[in-house]
Simulated scan of single mutants.
Amino acid sequence: MRIRIDLAYDGADFHGWARQPGLRTVQGALEAALVTVLRVPEVAVTCAGRTDTGVHARGQVVHADVTDEVLAASAGRSADPPPAALARRLNGILPPDVRVHRVAPAPAGFDARFGATWRRYAYRVADRPEAVDPLTRGHVLAWPRPLDLGPMNAAAEHLVGEHDFAAFCKQRAGASTVRELRELGWSRSSSGVLGARVVADAFCHHMVRSLVGCLVVVGEGRRPPSWAGEVLAAGVRDPAVPVVPAHGLTLEEVGYPADDALAAQADRTRRVRGPVPQENRP
């Protein structure tokens, strides 16, 4: 039986999503909790998008395969259905910086990683003294200079679409850097915080943080909006494009097709990406 787990986490004290020996990771914490609650030797989970050290998530999605018998036994005498009982018991032993929002049986053909059609991230920046809130410093980047929203959005228009984003990605041998960037835009909240909305079919390593870094340079007036397109067309990393800090970045949501299209979507994604793992780390 495949289960879908929706969860959120504060990435500040984690060395990213992926399990690493001797390091505290989100995957490691979740798998350890599942082993305890399900009373099995091991459980492997697969996520929609692997996040780097310091990156947060409100809408991470994972799947895990368990037997019906194991899931039912884990509920014990609970009056809740086994998936709901599992969610409650996981939250009882997980650290407070990880919360499971929901556990449910996954539809046929569901794959948290390959079945996703898009991921949505947000990057938040406080560029005005009155917008810098010490209570949100863990997920909002405090920027020392004012940023101009108009040029930043004009620059973003040069980046939307399907392109080779090699200029904005940390290269991995054999991995494609072609992605479809569906949305990239900035808005300012009532509290004065700038927020970037970034939606793509998938992301390569450091992609969102590099895109934001490029637009921040434009927002400061150091480069014109057309520069973003020039960087993209060059196809190589530009030292003038900073990779902004991880803590301003949050995985907000992951999209999937209708249940009857899940298997086809997963197969299509596997064929496009080939045998080399695509880690979707922004």
Score class of each variant (00 low, 15 high):
Asp148Met: 00
Leu149His: 01
Ala155Met: 00
Ile3Lys: 02
Ala29Trp: 03
Arg179Gly: 10
Arg179Val: 12
His63Thr: 00
Val61Gly: 00
Gly219Ser: 07
Pro144Val: 12
Ala240Asn: 09
Gln265Asp: 10
Asp148Gly: 00
Cys47Pro: 08
Arg58Thr: 13
Ala112Pro: 01
Thr250Glu: 07
His15Lys: 04
Leu232Glu: 01
Arg24Asp: 09
Val276Trp: 07
Arg50Asn: 05
Thr25Ser: 14
Ala12Trp: 12
Gly274Val: 06
Tyr121Pro: 06
Val35Arg: 15
Phe14Trp: 13
Asp68Phe: 08
Arg58Lys: 14
Leu251Ala: 10
Ser190Val: 05
Pro83Arg: 00
Gln171His: 14
Leu232Arg: 04
Ala131Lys: 01
Arg172Pro: 09
Val35Tyr: 12
Val100Ser: 04
Asp111Ala: 13
Val218Cys: 05
Tyr123Phe: 10
Ala8Trp: 14
Glu279Arg: 15
Ala240Pro: 09
Arg172Val: 11
Ala200Met: 12
Leu184Asp: 14
Asp164Leu: 02
Gln265Trp: 14
Thr46Trp: 11
Phe203Thr: 08
Ala122Asp: 15
Trp118Asn: 11
Arg4Gly: 04
His158Met: 05
Gly219Asp: 09
Leu141His: 05
Arg223Pro: 00
Gly11Ser: 08
Leu262Glu: 08
His163Ala: 05
Val98Ser: 06
Leu71Asn: 01
Gly219Lys: 04
Pro144Phe: 11
Asp267Val: 11
Gly235His: 04
Tyr123Ile: 01
Asp80Tyr: 14
Arg268Met: 13
Asp97Asn: 12
Gly11Met: 06
Pro224His: 04
Ala131Pro: 09
Ala122Lys: 13
Val55Trp: 08
Asp238Trp: 13
Arg270Tyr: 11
Ala240Trp: 07
Ala246Cys: 02
Ala48Trp: 02
Val236Asp: 09
Asp164Ser: 15
